[in-house]
Simulated scan of single mutants.
Amino acid sequence: MNLSAQHNTSLTIGELIDYLTSRGPAVSPTVDKLLYGEPDTTITSVAVTFLATQSVIKQAAELGANLIISHEHPYYNHNGMQHEQWKEDAVAQNKHLSIMESGIAIFRYHDHCHREQIDLITDGLVRQLEWEPYMEQRLPAASIAVLPSMSAADIAEHIKHTLRIPYVRLIGDPSQACSRVAITVGYRGGGNVVLPLLREQRVQLVIAGEGPEWEAPEYVRDAREQGLDYSMIMLGHAESEAPGMRYIAQLLAEQFPHIAVHTLIDKPLYAIL
């Protein structure tokens, strides 16, 4: 596709998908696909989101968007509920009907953005945290930053302020001085990702989205009992990946300035009681 020619012409859903999936290496197999809509439809405006929730679908319709780019599948697991499952589930059926009534297309954009030379989702989080000047190394599943030394509590406050989120969860001592930090997103907070970062990359603090609580968090607890200064901050899955989708929306707005691009982020999933 001649991208320069797209700046002054209409753009179809298929052309936008081709752009997104051709930026980096080919990915196969992949969950990235058009879940609703037709590729030859001309785009009016685009809504970019972490997840096409019921609220996001309503907001997109009110904005006049006819395409949602959703990082996660709208039907409650990585590969989506199978038709045989959701056709008898009232919540899934109602959501399906609302999507059909809206006429909005939905493209799942998950694998390709994670597989670019620099993971766009992690990079979006790094950028929103304003930590680009401190980046030392970018690994496939994490980025390593060397920050000016500050306490874990101060880092947590910085995260809440820059991401505009109400809370994070800390495993460790809030007063611990931290400098060498690993940033990872989504479901990469499990032991298979976190433990090598602590052991081999010698980080003091891992910032993650989510993961099984009995894996890396319990490892950190035992390590601290043994005298090692390890800590973790858990952001939440959506909170860790929404900045990456916001960054992707920015890239699309720059590449296709004639198309309105909106970032839609639903309110936090959990409330602290």
Rank of each mutant, 00 (worst) to 15 (best):
N2D: 13
L3E: 09
S4P: 00
L11C: 01
T12Y: 02
L16T: 03
I17G: 00
Y19P: 00
Y19Q: 05
Y19W: 11
T21H: 10
R23W: 00
R23Q: 11
G24V: 04
P25Y: 03
A26G: 05
V27H: 03
T30C: 07
Y36E: 07
Y36V: 03
S45A: 13
T49H: 02
L51Q: 07
L51P: 04
T53G: 07
I57P: 00
Q59A: 15
L63H: 06
Y76N: 13
G80M: 08
A92S: 15
L97N: 14
L97Y: 10
S98E: 15
F107S: 03
F107A: 01
R108P: 01
C113G: 08
C113K: 09
H114T: 11
I118R: 13
L120H: 08
G124Y: 04
L125N: 05
L125R: 03
Q128A: 12
E130L: 13
E132F: 01
E136C: 10
Q137H: 11
Q137G: 04
Q137N: 11
R138A: 13
A141S: 13
A141W: 09
I144P: 01
L147P: 02
P148Q: 10
S151Q: 06
A152G: 09
D154R: 14
I155W: 05
I159F: 02
K160N: 12
K160V: 09
Y167Q: 13
V168P: 02
R169T: 12
P174Q: 11
Y187S: 15
G189E: 07
G190I: 09
V194H: 00
V194M: 08
R199Q: 15
R199W: 06
I207H: 06
G211W: 05
E218K: 14
V220A: 06
D222I: 12
A223Q: 12
R224V: 00
E225R: 14
Q226D: 10
A238G: 12
Q250F: 01
A260K: 11
T263G: 00
K267R: 15
P268G: 08
A271Q: 14
